[in-house]
Design a protein around this nucleic acid. Structure first.
Lengths: 256, 256
DNA sequence: AAGTGGTCTAGACCACTAT
DNA sequence: TAGTGGTCTAGACCACTTT
């Protein structure tokens, strides 16, 4: 409201204290834009923190927070005693996430999960190793298919520790358990998981289940989950049609 | 040195002001460990910031920074007016990066790049669209092969804007340009890039170049790079043998 | 010695949520 | 109203780099 005041420099380069957006975020946006516009180029040194304090009339802590933010985002890098510098675009710092995959599960209207198989089997070498048990010991074997708009997207094959004391089969069998992995249901059991993404060829069984031609490529998302005693609880694979999943990201200064 | 003092609680739960590690990081490590040990479980509320200040004898700003750190890492979530809570493991928040891929390029001893082809061609529909030019216009077409220990790993196919004024062919042709994309050489030209990872089937040509059986699966890393005027500069694909690249990450509380 | 980033304090005020 | 997280200040001190 009472905007439109102060020094007659570029208006956008002033921090609005009445704004909803906090000062450190506004300053970060200003510096980002200046970098995006080429005012500061990769390798250039940014104004020192003291200068930024004076220029934008904020305290050192606020500037510090802005710089930390930009450094976290990979936009700048700092060197104690030397200064803060604009980083060049770096492919290696690109990151991908599984949020799109998560959306598959949260959209319960168009998504359904078909249970193909649950039974107790003897652990083979591979699973025994992953679950830290002896080969041949009983484990729970689950096979599930995830459909979206009646079309198969995902095939999930998993092995669970067989614990007669606390059978988690019921809990793991239905949709909820899969959804729970992606949303934050109150599963207080799992502490951490190890994930591995590979590009694989579908085998005959998988191709048939996913209604995919053979041969065809797919993503394999292998997972091992551990409880709070660091004991493995489950291990398995999500196999996803390659036309149903891709990973997208941007790297560098993204002002879009 | 002069450690070993103060209140006789658990020694590890005291912040060491002489330590190299800053206070906010020490406090973060303490809380992480308590969560990992199950003292605080997913869904539990952490002590309030004021309580943490008193308990660990640090200022509010320091506690704040610790909580921000843990929130960034996905360990806790905060709700203004309610409190700070331990987050349950969530698959969707998992992130993968390309650092392993970057290492392929930085290790110049065992890595070499073979130039297969450079020539000027007419842009097809797809590339013209990506490079925002008219179809049929001349573009530079480059094909390269990356070898590690004499074994083919990567196949790179790329299209570059043809600019008679500033021919970047020489710069883009050799190893350096590829390395530069992954390390931070001083390429002040590129502002941002869009990346897409897919699982694909190798075609005959690719399989042959990569010494891979046919059919076989592979990762395709599509990229489009833009300059500081937001004009596309290059577009292309890295095609990588599936046995030479995988993405690994952990999710949840990782205390290893 | 001067300038830089990095950490930390001891308060203040605000916005939000619960009771 | 009391308690919570969220922001911000105006300094202080330290470690490091450059000149």
């Amino acid at each position: 409201m009472k905007r439109r005041a102060g020094r007659q420099t570029k208006d956008a380069d002033i921090i609005d204290r009445e704004a909803y957006e906090p000062a450190y975020a506004q300053l970060a946006a200003i510096l980002r834009r200046q970098i995006a516009e080429g005012i500061f180029r990769p390798g250039d040194q940014l104004p020192s923190e003291a200068q930024l304090c004076r220029r934008y009339v904020v305290s050192p802590m606020t500037v510090r927070r802005t710089i930390n933010l930009l450094a976290d985002q990979g936009v700048v890098s700092t060197a104690q005693g030397r200064g803060t510098f604009v980083r060049a675009l770096e492919l290696g710092s690109a990151t991908f996430n599984l949020h799109e995959l998560q959306e598959l599960f949260t959209d319960t209207l168009s998504t359904e999960i078909k249970l193909l198989d649950v039974r107790i089997v003897s652990a083979d070498e591979d699973t025994a190793c992953k679950l830290k048990i002896k080969a041949g010991k009983p484990v729970i074997y689950i096979r599930r298919l995830l459909l979206r708009h009646k079309q198969p997207i995902f095939y999930h094959r998993g092995y669970l520790i067989f614990d007669p004391i606390r059978p988690i089969v019921e809990a793991e069998m239905d949709i909820t358990s899969l959804q729970g992995l992606f949303t934050n249901a109150d599963r207080t059991i799992l502490k951490r998981g190890e994930l591995t993404v590979r590009a694989i060829l579908l085998n005959e069984e998988e191709a048939q289940l996913l209604h995919a031609p053979s041969p065809s490529a797919a993503f394999s998302l292998e997972h091992i989950f551990y409880d709070f005693d660091d004991e493995p609880i489950s291990a398995g694979w999500f196999v996803c049609r390659s036309d149903a999943l891709l990973f997208r990201t941007t790297v560098g200064i993204d002002e879009t």
